[in-house]
Design a protein around this nucleic acid. Structure first.
Lengths: 342, 342
DNA sequence: GGAATTGGGGCAAGCGCTTTCACCGCTTGC
DNA sequence: GCAAGCGGTGAAAGCGCTTGCCCCAATTCC
């Protein structure tokens, strides 16, 4: 005689409780580990769970618990190759500590940004990391009002329940400028990202400050953050009467575009013109010539963002703090000795 | 006299209902739009909501509703530059249709994969897209058993509640082989990804089939999916007695590594040796020489995955289907006329 | 003009879990 | 020997929302 199997489509804790002959509360306790349960009771419950293919319902759990295990991670656009490593390290750290990650992109769009933050609130995320530089600080206030901790990147400092991570471009820019100077470069240009974004403006200022120390000027051309725009900007620079021998870019994509433009115009890189990027995107090392660049440690950034958030969750209703992350020059092949003459 | 403001930390629907003088059910109805509500009632409710800064609790909503609006998107590793565009298009489509995306990476790790799928179940995702080729088909069964629809990439065909998207490498490989043949190439090599993964094996077979039509053989070297491994493989190929004039790669990263290795060994690309990649990663166009490659339309893939899932959600408890996505050769600079002699 | 329909909205029973409180049977302290 | 303490478990009250059902008034129909 075949066993009469009662197959339950979506078994609940009640089913598990009944099958193992305990109360629901006990099942809950072995599930969450919040209280000690006698070994054989526990074993019986676990047996019943596997038998029924039980999976707890996290929505119910989060509702009853009153808070969720989601951490928000807000970025601007996942296609920016700077993000994947950041996301990965944030996610890994979060997972290890029992959080889930709620990833959302703003696409630099106001409406979408609004939507993203509403989503964070509606999902009751206890904390959110905003790793996009173009989100107004007002969002931090709105989050804080609802008790949500936040950590921003390159925003205007910490606030209540809001921390900030500052990127120190000075270090990396200094290294880059001195490196180029040693190689004999005297005419510097920057293909800058949109100056409306704080981080791009900061990068430019860091560069200018370093050059000033050497009594040198910086020629700035503004561009978008993509390769085409970088190529166009480079072309403009190369047709100048006194063209620069060193071109810095606020971004690796722009730099890659600039290099292509140089080659297309008949200038060798780095023999005729040196190009330095910023970010140290994974593929920077693979292009030809391999890109010399000012590295922003994306992996560390993701980890730091998580840790900062975690800390704020432990110490509720307190002011956030500020941490600084260093940048550094990564020397590869796209910069070399300055060409003599012009 | 100052108004006595009753500030509620986390207002609930009950608060909104009380303030606007209606029942909770009515508030719910204006929130979800499931039933018509008279304009002025609606206005009153909305006014109360903004006044209280009300945000609905999605966990409660999902519990009451009995299902969630999460769609799972399982990838292997977000650092693979093939994914960002795929993720973006999937996410955009999902968002437009009122879904949320639950992104998860397997990292080719069994334990982590297990965790990922449990997470999908626990979050009651009604459907999940598995865009990683190394997830066993058993997962589809486990999902289907719980009524979860799934769509896989390059798996072993459709099944109950499981659809499949097949990448047709034949088209792109054919174009690549004929293109190279026309350019005079006769000695072909493939730097193949691990043959244990179905998609890599399929790529190799497609290539061999096309070459057979021309009476040519393919020399295969196996490598990992990264640039270093590609470089090593290329170096091996170049030191062969009869070295190939055309090197195909099952992946752009490998190809980029291979090109660097060629240059390092003193071979010009494409003058001395032609290299063709696969995927068409965003930065393929930016390297030097710009990479000629067999494109896998990541954007279309993401969209298709969503649409397939959506369709299965509409038609419950039915078999899934299979769709094929074409690949195509994108001609850029890394392949050229075969060098004469050897 | 009375009956039948209909649109708008209230009531209340859950959704599946967590957690407080209470309880039971035992060991421990004096 | 009795009170107190304690480890293990159960009963039940929610968590904040959705939704089936019902009701009331205002229409519409004969």
């Amino acid at each position: 005689m075949a066993m009469r199997m009662k197959i339950i489509a979506r078994p609940t804790m009640k089913d598990v409780a009944r099958l193992s002959g305990v109360a629901e509360s006990t099942v809950s306790r072995v599930l969450t580990g919040t209280k000690f349960v006698a070994p054989d009771t526990k074993a019986a419950v676990e047996k019943a769970m596997t038998e029924l293919h039980f999976h707890r319902d996290l929505h119910a759990s989060r509702l009853a618990r009153g808070r969720s295990d989601f951490l928000g991670l807000v970025i601007s656009n996942i296609e920016n190759p700077f993000y994947p490593l950041l996301i990965k390290s944030f996610e890994t750290a979060a997972l290890e500590h029992g959080f889930e990650v709620l990833l959302a992109s703003t696409h630099y769009d106001l409406e979408r940004t609004e939507h993203v933050f509403r989503r964070m609130l509606e999902n009751k995320a206890p904390g959110v990391a905003v790793m996009s530089s173009r989100v107004s600080g007002e969002m931090a206030v709105r989050l804080a009002e609802r008790g949500v901790a936040s950590v921003f990147l390159d925003s205007d400092g910490p606030g209540p329940r809001k921390s900030n991570i500052r990127l120190d471009y000075q270090q990396g820019c200094g290294e880059a400028v001195r490196y180029l100077h040693t190689l004999g470069h005297r005419r510097f240009a920057l293909i800058a990202g949109p100056q409306s974004r704080a981080s791009h403006a900061a990068y430019r200022e860091a560069l200018e400050r370093e050059l000033k120390k050497l009594g040198l000027k910086l020629r700035v051309v503004e561009a978008q953050n993509d390769a085409d725009s970088g190529a166009a900007a480079a072309t403009r620079l190369l047709t100048l009467e006194t063209r620069p021998t060193a071109i810095l870019c606020s971004n690796d994509l722009t730099a890659l575009g600039a290099i292509r433009a140089c080659l297309k115009c008949g200038f060798k890189v780095p023999a005729d013109v040196s190009v330095i990027g910023a970010d140290d995107v994974p593929l920077a090392a693979l292009s030809n010539p391999a890109l010399t660049t000012v590295r922003i440690p994306a992996g560390q950034l993701g980890l730091l963002a998580f840790q900062t958030l975690k800390q704020m969750l432990v110490a509720p209703r307190r002011m956030g703090g500020e941490t600084t992350l260093q940048t550094e020059l990564v020397v590869r092949e796209s910069a070399g000795p300055a060409a003599t003459g012009r």
